[in-house]
Design a protein around this nucleic acid. Structure first.
Lengths: 194, 194
DNA sequence: TTAACATACATACAGTATGTATGTAAATAA
DNA sequence: TTATTTACATACATACTGTATGTATGTTAA
């Protein structure tokens, strides 16, 4: 019955994936661990062996999604050599990634409430917001943007994108909504351009 | 033991106020109804008589805060006759109101998760976001801002403010943080100015 | 190669919180 | 004055989470 290392990792990944589906579909509070383990062919004991508690499992799911989107954003940004284009590309990639497959529920709705604001902030800093801040910092040093508080600007942009992602997610034609959002973001960013 | 109409209204207001304190202090999930009614000198029966359930009580608290801030914003905006100044004044008032007395936890963290995105959105539309949208719509008709999707712009700005409120709340010197945030917001808005 | 131990779970149970059904005294309506 | 709401209290069913403990199997070292 005991599994080797590889099999165990597979079990954990499997739990995370199943949990991800349930959390996105029904939300954190409306998902009982029992439902998840039933689908995995296990019992709740397995979850409490591999994770600290229900929150721990959620955190694993949350981080998986963050990383996924983070990589997508980085890839998109790296397609240009110009700071300004990198920023724009990254923003668009974020909108696409976060709006995809109902990630918003975990990332933006349950995330802060379940993990608490402090933990959520740390995660957000670690993944998505960090690269945004670094990019803005860099651009300020290159005198491409006005001399304002980088922190405040980072949070404003991050917030604008987070919220507009939820707006985009409400649309059937996400492509059009993303375009509308990007038009707004480009104009807003023009305001801080130097 | 039974109360008259006035007394009953007082009881309800009292429950809402006590609940507000607990929700802001400990968050929704970490607040047991028992704690609230104990402080009010009642039992849980009272809550289930006046409200649908725990969520219903939370909703009442949520709406009270929204209304409070909404009035504050309207008052601030009305201090000027110029659309642009009205917008700026309103934004600043929102930052001040939402950052005050830990309102953010209820408004921005627990709100979406507890009420669900749909209900939250409706509330947000009904109160804070609605006046912002109307103002932007008006300004677009006055040809004061660029021709972009008003909806997208509304959500971007609303999101930017919501997020930056949480950033402000992290600061000891909120006044300074608000100033930094307003500097950023003014620049961003300059981008959509015509 | 076998004893000692770790791992990966299962099972049972305790604790806590919500929600609901029902009872009851007081106020209002008839 | 009687009937009927209203404003709760009480008791209880239900649903989860978390924890303690048991167990089978793999691994390591003497």
């Amino acid at each position: 019955m005991r599994k080797n290392k590889v099999e165990t990792e597979q079990t954990i990944r499997n739990l995370i994936n199943i949990a991800r589906h349930h959390f996105t579909e029904y939300g954190y509070v409306n998902t009982a661990l029992e439902e998840i383990v039933k689908e995995a062919g296990l019992t709740r004991g397995a979850v409490y062996h591999h994770f600290r508690n229900k929150k721990g499992l959620f955190l694993a799911v949350f981080e998986a999604i963050q990383q996924e989107i983070g990589e997508y954003v980085e890839t998109a940004a790296a397609k240009s050599n110009h700071s300004w284009d990198q920023l724009i590309n990254g923003c668009q990639a974020f909108l696409e990634g976060a709006a995809a497959s109902h990630n918003q529920r975990i990332l933006l709705i349950d995330g802060p409430a379940v993990l608490g604001w402090d933990t959520f902030r740390k995660m957000d800093e670690k993944y998505s917001m960090n690269s945004l801040r670094e990019q803005l910092q860099l651009m300020q040093e290159q005198h491409l943007i006005q001399p304002v508080s980088t922190e405040a600007l980072t949070h404003c942009l991050s917030g604008a994108m987070n919220e507009v992602v939820l707006w985009i997610a409400d649309h059937l034609e996400q492509k059009d909504a993303i375009e509308d959002a990007m038009n707004v973001l480009r104009l807003l960013l023009d305001g801080v351009r130097k």
